[in-house]
Design a protein around this nucleic acid. Structure first.
Lengths: 233, 233
DNA sequence: TCAAAAGTGTTTAGGTTACACCCATGC
DNA sequence: GCATGGGTGTAACCTAAACACTTTTGA
């Protein structure tokens, strides 16, 4: 009979791919850190850490995300587990990657700087350690799928946003320009956005109406068989 | 400075959700085993095992699949990693689930029986140990997505199959009946099926033409920007 | 000849795409 | 009054959906 005790135990880590969106320069960014341990100390890395005995994988991911950003209740989702033997030259480590979507403004500035974390544009990332770039690629591919089919884009925008900002976000993710009229028609026809009676006046003289994503309405629609779908042309 | 050595090591396992399709009774099945170790010995379980020091996660999954079925080169894909603290009452085990799609006829009968493995209809599964039912649910949901968008259905059918069998498979997966003419139009218009000049004559007098999935043609089309899409109405 | 399953086209509806001008405002 | 970005509608096209009868053949 097999026994638990006979088997090899492994170091298990989580790594967080932390996505943000900068409404100013219209770019998707990643929160990266300078690694603090050998090997590869000082190199750019995803935020990661080992899984403790008394915490689940999900808890470990939340903890690491929180310690870096100070944020709780962030959109956080398991991505993929990387189990190659030599992926980490320091030791055999099995690592589960998690994707986080955060509103850049929400970050606790002090904590961020304490940990040497920096936002880097996805389009010109520095070289990352180990297989972290692969993790980013997979997470990004997944984000591109999800954002078509689930209202996750709103996790990257401020609570109040304009339709122009929302469209810019989609264009940044797909690296493609989108027809303004068609985009607005589709998103508004879903009835999950609430038009506020206030305008964003910083980027134009006319000003653009603020909207917010109505989670409650969305949940009700979902229960009635509605499927979010924002296929961008 | 952090050190690798300071951190807890964990038992890491893989569990395989092995899907098969029975063209006779038109049902999706799972290959389940009677668990051979405590706790829960004798209970129904997915095929699983611990990850060794000298093998990757993927290799561990292949090994376990091979030891149970005798098959190599099977469609095998990582599904999700289950990392709850108490998911296995015997010890804290982190387990990565893998989905396998196999052609039922291909199984090595002897090996299968040796391990106490049995095909069970998805629609009336026995109670499974631990969180294995959750693993099945997630894998199935993923299969339903994949089969719309990637030609994975053919992994579940024999090398030569009829359009009726292919449609029956989709109906089994979606639990919904599908319009025969629309289904055929869609799949044939992709030009990835090759009509053979032989008929399957067991289930009808008239006989149904055999087809096979042409992987090469599919690859070429993919390279040219083709996307498989078989959305079933 | 009849029962049983395989195979085949057309029409309609709905959704997606393409496309260009007016509006509001601050300077 | 003009430059800048925000906001709006419609026609053409194309894909998806609905739908029923003919063919083949073994018993």
């Amino acid at each position: 009979m097999e026994l638990y005790a006979e088997h090899t135990r492994h170091l298990v880590a989580v790594d967080c791919i932390i996505f943000g969106y900068d409404t100013q320069d219209k770019e998707i960014k990643l929160l990266l850190i300078k690694r603090s341990m050998e090997p590869a100390r000082g190199k750019w890395s995803l935020a990661g850490g080992f899984v403790n005995e008394n915490e689940s994988l999900d808890q470990a991911a939340s903890r690491i995300l929180r310690s870096l950003t100070g944020l709780r209740n962030v959109y956080l989702e398991q991505s993929y587990t990387y189990g190659g033997i030599n992926r980490d030259p320091g030791a055999r480590v099995i690592s589960t990657a998690y994707s986080a979507l955060i509103k850049i403004r929400d970050i606790d500035k002090d904590l961020k700087e304490l940990n040497g974390a920096h936002w880097q544009s996805l389009s010109r990332l520095p070289k990352l350690i180990f297989d972290h770039y692969m993790m980013v690629e997979r997470a990004l591919a997944n984000l591109r799928m999800q954002i078509k089919v689930k209202p996750v884009g709103f996790e990257l925008l401020p609570e109040r946003f304009t339709l122009v900002q929302l469209q810019d976000l989609y264009e940044a993710i797909y690296q493609r320009i989108v027809d303004k009229r068609n985009f607005r028609k589709k998103i508004l026809s879903m009835n999950i956005l609430e038009k506020l009676d206030e305008k964003e006046k910083e980027t134009s003289k006319k000003g653009a109406w603020y909207y917010r994503f109505n989670r409650e309405t969305y949940k009700v629609l979902r229960r009635n068989g509605f499927y979010f779908n924002l296929d961008v042309n």
